[in-house]
């Protein structure tokens, strides 16, 4: 009878070599995979945020077909697995359009990575639409009415009155979405995008040290999400700190805002 648990010789030298970026990045596959993971996450999240903002605006349309279209989009992208969506996008669409590699500013953007960014971004848009909608509807109706009474059209009201205040509500869940996004990029491996996880998998196919390599790579993702956690905490502390929001730089102007009811109710009681 064979033993159910075999002894495994854990090769510390492989583990350390691949955990430590200066040595791991000697392997150009891993170095480029690491950067692909980061820019894929950033670009897909950006796409999700932009499309999500558009989706939330469309949801507020008084045209019913427009709202239905957004509802159907959200139903589909939240109700089906991301893995299936990516496969459908890359392999399914391949019948009519195959993503070509793009060479830009001396960098190559492989077709699979483009498809990954678009797939992740389209999926993220569904979730960001919901986050934007919740953020916008958290703003007191009196704000919209005051803007309307001044003669502001819808876009102006959104841009200058509602969104600056809703940002405060939107930022925390958006941060969590990006944390997820950093990890979801690994799914791009199924369509052949070479990011960090697929790079390590390819190394493993040669060395066959799965325990050491996958443990090492998990620390890379941990490092990315921890660093993002710090950035998120910093942004949120700036949002919470009224005095710091008095600056006039573009970022502070974007980030500042406070709940509509707070200012007026407190003022009335004073």
């Amino acid at each position: 009878m064979l033993p159910l648990i075999a002894t495994y010789h854990f090769d510390w030298s492989v583990f350390w070599a691949y955990l430590w970026p200066p040595t791991a990045f000697h392997n150009s596959l891993i170095a480029s995979g690491f950067w692909v993971t980061i820019y894929m996450a950033v670009l897909a999240q950006t796409m999700g945020v932009v499309l999500g903002a558009v989706g939330a605006m469309m949801q507020m349309s008084h045209r019913r077909p427009v709202r239905w279209a957004v509802a159907a989009y959200i139903l589909w992208f939240r109700g089906t697995p991301l893995l299936v969506q990516l496969s459908l996008l890359y392999f399914g669409i391949a019948a009519i359009y195959s993503f070509p590699d793009v060479h830009l500013l001396g960098l190559t953007l492989p077709g699979a990575v483009q498809a990954g960014i678009i797939g992740l971004g389209l999926n993220e848009a569904a979730f960001m639409t919901e986050i934007f909608r919740a953020g916008i509807s958290s703003i007191d109706r009196g704000q919209t009415e005051a803007a309307k009474a001044l003669g502001m059209p819808f876009r102006t009201t959104m841009r200058w009155v509602i969104l600056p205040q809703a940002t405060r509500v939107i930022i925390p869940p958006l941060g969590n979405e990006f944390n997820n996004m950093l990890k979801s990029t690994t799914l791009v491996v199924v369509i052949g995008g070479v990011e960090l996880f697929s790079a390590i998998s390819q190394v493993n196919a040669v060395l066959f040290k799965p325990f050491e390599l996958f443990l090492a790579v998990s620390f890379y993702y941990l490092a990315l999400t921890i660093v993002w956690g710090w950035i998120q905490a910093w942004i949120e502390s700036r949002l919470g700190d009224q005095k710091r929001l008095r600056g006039s730089g573009p970022i502070t102007r974007l980030l500042r805002g406070q709940p509509g009811a707070l200012g007026t109710v407190e003022g009335a009681r004073r």
Binding site: D140, G142, Q143, A149, L150, G151, R256, Q258, G260, L262
Partner: peptide, 24 residues
Amino acid sequence: SEGVLAKQRRETGMVFQRFNLFPH
């Protein structure tokens, strides 16, 4: 349309019970 209505509203100014100042 909403845009035309916005222009028409410029004839009037409104002051609300709850002030509705922009808090940001």
